[in-house]
Design a protein around this nucleic acid. Structure first.
Lengths: 386, 386
DNA sequence: CAACTAAGTTTAATGAATAAACTATGATGA
DNA sequence: TCATCATAGTTTATTCATTAAACTTAGTTG
């Protein structure tokens, strides 16, 4: 709609860019943004801002709200995101279950369905549910995004060990049913995008590391995934970071992989599972040998130091089930990063915000692709509550 | 000129973008590009392409050349870069000497001056030479770029151990004398940019690693430095990558840094110096214990694997004096990268092209900033010969 | 209540694109 | 040999999103 081609053929591209900018301003400050505010923020004239707003209202992307208090003259008409029309279909696809949510433009979840399946029935049941949604919400769907474990180029699943898929053109399949654009995104990338909502412009690279049964990484910049064709980026779980006698056998058959030291399975044993709730994880952690956390933190710190140095990363965020280990584990990592390192700037390390992983990332990813727009952190919280 | 603001206020921004695209096409295929070719490549109409070309000729950026052979109709007028007017001032600043070159838009070096100094006299002599150039070439200068060792935000030298500078606003100082924009760039970044000229669009990230007395890294994407405010990026020399008994004392006082294993000084001893020519380096290498190369290659391979995995890098390029060690050293690195690693794609590793380091990178960096344009690899070779 | 201030709209002008008709020049084939 | 076609490039009228400036609306303030 607002996106599309990169051809700078005519002034249409300027119009699209300005529509995006105006829409972004409303997304960032819903309920308080005004036509005059858009004019001031963009440098466009009030006439143009009005024209842009008219088109966005016409497209049912924003709506007028209350009159704002006067600031000395006529009261301004506030603008909000139009939550009443367009919907984003968010699919979280996991090996034995999936979650399909319809998310409004204000972040509210309008409808959520959960399905469970055996791997053999997965394709059929997914297709059926997508078909059903296509029937029920036809005309209101804006875009769809699917998050899944594995590598993807956004259109097809290149390789997913967990799902047992190789080169599956999932986006094409769903697009034929839904008749709106469908995007695929790696689950860790989606988690990183959700987390990146708090990222300010020009604040630099942020490294996100998910730690559960496996380990994955993602790099974001200005609230979006770092640019470039990076279909297989972030696959750091099986890079060797432990050497010599300390290197342990990894499930991949090699020695000293990051996962062999820092994954939750490595630290808590095979009883650990991504589906455990934090209380259960803490119980496992209490029973574990404290040495495994020291080893895990050390391997993780080595990884972080190198990547943060080459990117000059502004922040490192750690997400996933590992959060149940709490600040003590993070302090081990921070100590091992060794802030005194010559030539390496201090890299703050923190855990991801609670619940960011659910489906906000896919929704944000799809929204950004459809409208070139980011939600404010406040609105993401709305999605999380949903 | 063609760059400037990001304000999408008017169709002027479209015009600027189209001028850049037309200019880029002439830069990429000088002597063979035509108005009709620009129209075809951009999707713009022939009328618009003609108008863009007229403006670029008016600005003395391109010139008409020969008539091309007919392809079935009227012969086309070829277009070339106008090498006769605008000049780029390229400064390579080193601790005890500097090189100031005036580079034409076709890559030819029109004038080159070398100055030597003691650190105490450096500022004065640089200023004098820049003033002299400002006098001689006033009116023809388009932009200036300075390459130097150390961290920079493009405007000021944040920290340069080699030059003994901290927070020196060098760009401002030179801009007052030259009256054209001045950009600063880290020397390894400049080397990476020169190397990135062969990089195709959308081919992914390329990791460049310079190995001499010190080690630095840079990441490029689509022929340019990876985006983002990365003032201190690539400072990987003093990240620990060797652990346990194998870790050696580094000149920074810590143990196991990448430089302590893989720098030329670590491998060849303190007799090594960045100024040695390849023959002298090979002589040192012949006298060295082969074990140091194995150790150096192993530490380097560990570094490369992790960074390449997180970025999904398409290629790794190694530059600097290390090239004198030849393919045997590179083969050690390649073997250690261990192509069989699970989840890690094969990353090709090669040496940088010969002579790329001289001044092409700064020139390209400045050119890209001034006109948003990249030279073709052919033209970069012209600079290298200069 | 007059003067001021801010929000927002209307109208004419501007500039960069397109479409379509045009000129110029060479290749091709009956 | 010349009519026809193909390609390069220009000219002219039209379109469209912007700006500037005048205007309306609706509030605050002395």
């Amino acid at each position: 709609m607002l996106n599309s081609d990169d051809a700078l053929d005519t002034q249409g591209s300027v119009r699209r860019a300005n529509l995006r900018r105006a829409l972004q301003l409303v997304f960032r400050s819903p309920g308080t943004q005004t036509r005059a505010g858009i004019a001031r923020a963009t440098g466009l004239t009030a006439a143009t801002a009005s024209s842009l707003v008219a088109e966005l209202i016409e497209s049912r992307l924003i709506v007028e709200g209350e009159q704002a208090a006067s600031t000395g003259g006529k009261r301004a008409t506030t603008l909000s995101v139009d939550a009443g029309h367009h919907l984003i279909l968010v699919m979280v696809i996991r090996p034995t279950d999936a979650r399909l949510s319809l998310v409004a433009l204000d972040g509210a979840e309008v409808d959520t369905r959960r399905i469970s399946y055996t791997p053999a029935a997965r394709d059929r049941m997914l297709d059926e549910e997508v078909e059903r949604i296509a029937g029920e919400y036809s005309g209101r769907l804006l875009i769809a995004g699917a998050q899944l474990p594995g590598t993807t180029d956004g259109r097809a699943v290149l390789e997913s060990v967990q799902l047992g898929w190789t080169d599956v053109p999932l986006a094409d399949r769903f697009e034929r049913m839904l008749d709106v654009p469908v995007l695929l995104v790696n689950d860790v990338d989606a988690e990183a995008i959700a987390e990146a909502a708090t990222e300010e412009e020009d604040s630099g690279y942020r490294l996100f590391i998910h730690i559960g049964v496996g380990i994955g990484a993602a790099v974001t910049l200005d609230g979006r995934l770092a640019p470039g064709p990076r279909d297989r980026a972030g696959e750091i779980g099986h890079v060797q970071v432990v050497f010599g006698d300390e290197a342990r056998l990894c499930r991949c058959g090699r020695y000293g992989c990051l996962e062999s030291a820092s994954s939750m399975t490595a630290m808590l044993g095979d009883d650990f599972d991504d589906a455990l709730d934090p209380r259960e994880v803490r119980a496992l952690a209490d029973a574990a040998d404290p040495g495994v956390f020291a080893d895990g933190a050390r391997a993780l710190a080595r990884t972080i130091k190198l990547i943060a140095a080459v990117l000059d990363a502004a922040e490192v965020v750690i997400g996933g089930p590992v959060k149940a280990l709490g600040e003590p584990f993070l302090d081990l990592v921070r100590t091992d990063i060794d802030y005194a390192a010559t030539g390496t700037a201090d890299v703050p390390v923190r855990y991801a915000d609670a619940d960011a992983a659910i489906s906000t990332g896919v929704a944000q990813f799809a929204l950004s692709a459809a409208l070139g727009v980011r939600w404010s952190p406040q609105q993401l919280r709305a999605v999380r509550r949903g």
